[in-house]
Amino acid sequence: MSVPRKKLSGGQRAVLAAPYLWIVVFFLAPMALIAKISLSHPAETRPPYEPTFSIDDGLAGVLAKARTLGFDAYRALADDRLYLDSYLTSLLIAGVSTAIMLMIAYPFALTMARAPRRLRSLLIGLAVAPFWTSFLIRVYAWIALLKDEGLINHALMALHIIDAPLSIYATNGAVVIGIVYSYLPFMLLPLYSALERQDPALREAAADLGASPLQVFWRVTLPLSRPGVIAGCLLVFIPAVGEFVIPDLLGGSETLMIGRTLWNDFFANRDWPAASAAAIILLALLIGPLLVAERARLRAEEEPS
């Protein structure tokens, strides 16, 4: 494999460098900072951890301080049930929400993709319309809907479907509802774009070869939409795991999501190293499987057959 590389001009290099620069400045640098804090010790200082490096330290000073860095925060996390529970609850809530979103969004996206062409842009517009109002306000609105004396319970009781109000608000269920509602368009759009691209002749060919409409769906439509399913699931699952606002507003005191636990450690306990370590572990938890999956996909593609 010796593909001769074309020499890039200075301008081309600059254009290519821009996104990398962006990632370094706004993503990698903050991540490095958090990684460093996760290796520090909590202290009654400002900022509340030690050591802090400064230019005045000199090389010897920096080295001496660097020696005090350690994995104490990680060890503490491993011993703390609270964190383990938070991670598990977060993964569970995000997983359940993702599954529900997939089941809601798929038929939705399929209908949009099969709608007459002139209707499609209108349907997409409607799907993303909620984004035009504040996310926070929409989540607050759900409080009004879900509360014991909220609109949903009122309506159900007025219709004599239930006798006593359902306690949905301040439960994990309410958090799932909030996440499903807020993130649905992120699931919908990749699914739609994957389904819309499918050549209708493929479905006709499958039907022609004896596949019933249901078999056409299972054998052709669904497998071909796999990239959209994967993209949609990642797009909602990853931010849902770290979600803070929705569990804070809709969850109960027992809703232990990692975002909330982190927030408590940062702002209530002022234990920045522990919170940073938790954030790093979260990142590893999310990115690890992703990298493995991507490698497997690349290997499958390269495989000569």
């Binding site: 493929l202 060919a205 071909l224």
Partner: peptide, 8 residues
């Protein structure tokens, strides 16, 4: 089919 419509 004219486009062959093979399943990719």
């Amino acid at each position: 089919f004219q486009s062959y419509a093979l399943f990719p």
